[in-house]
Design a protein around this nucleic acid. Structure first.
Length: 247
DNA sequence: AACGACACCAACCGCTCCGTG
DNA sequence: GCACGGAGCGGTTGGTGTCGT
């Protein structure tokens, strides 16, 4: 794109680094009221001294109501491994199959845990069966080797000759993915400006912050969203509280 | 208790994609 | 068709917590 591009924001005039609870509240409050049609102008309108990109990232990776916090379950990890085998480093693609998990989170988990785990297990059980050399001197090679093995296992489990998509309901784990995916439609609603629904379990820090001055109870982190429909009163209370916090 | 190594994760950076005029 | 701007994505970094010595 031709002449290069202007930076997304004036870095000398925006705050950087970790977000404070107050900033989080401002962002949540603004998005709940007005949505996020335009990330670039959002900081200005909401009174945040942040780059639009930073706001977007914070919202998507942390504040979004449907973000699931906490450790990945074994099933989720396995799913990530399999999806990575299919999609490669398309984290957003993988994330779309794991509701509540963000691309950033999946990426982190992959780099910190799963990749290592794969390399380790490839070292203990070399995939000699398919005549691929798994030299220890090249970790990426080892990883590739293992991926190949997983791929085989995966395609086998999905059933021979069938594509991933056409057989996903046959595999219990893929079935699980499907169940997750069913929530996607609901989750995507969150991005719509006119929606006024705030689940109470998205961010421990925020809720801890809120709890410190109010007794708004957050529901358990792993309880799913079915109970949320009756939370409208809670939402109003929450807004009132947030507004008072911001004053 | 102090220190270093390692692990984890939030956030940033820069690039690409896509819509619009 | 082209230029531009905004959004999204993936790679990387830096801060912080944890563990081992």
């Amino acid at each position: 794109m031709g002449k290069g591009r202007a930076p997304c924001c004036d870095k000398t005039k925006v705050k950087r680094g970790p977000w404070s609870p107050e900033e989080d509240l401002k962002l949540i409050s603004f998005i709940q009221k007005f949505g996020h049609e335009n990330w670039r102008s959002l900081p200005k309108q909401s009174g945040l001294l942040r780059c639009g990109k930073s706001c977007r990232l914070r919202w998507i990776n942390y504040l979004r109501p449907d973000v699931k916090r906490g450790n990945f379950t074994a099933e989720e990890e396995e799913t990530v491994i399999k999806l990575h085998q299919n999609y490669g480093n398309k984290w957003s693609r993988i994330a779309s199959q794991l509701p509540g998990r963000t691309d950033n989170e999946i990426k982190n988990v992959w780099h910190t845990r799963l990749k290592k785990r794969l390399v380790q297990s490839s070292e203990t059980s070399p995939c000699s069966s398919n005549s691929v050399s798994c030299g220890k001197e090249d970790k990426s090679q080892a990883e590739g080797c293992l991926n190949k093995k997983i791929s085989q296992d995966f395609t086998t489990s999905v059933s021979s000759g069938g594509s991933y998509n056409s057989n996903q309901e046959d595999d219990p784990k893929i079935g699980l993915l499907f169940k997750y995916s069913a929530f996607n439609d609901i989750i995507q609603e969150v991005d719509k400006p006119d929606l006024l629904e705030i689940p109470f379990d998205s961010d421990p820090d925020i809720w801890g912050f809120l709890d410190s001055s109010n007794s708004l109870q957050q529901s358990g982190a792993n309880e799913f969203r079915a109970e949320q429909e009756s939370d409208e009163d809670e939402v109003k209370k929450w807004f009132k509280h947030m507004e008072s916090e911001l004053e």
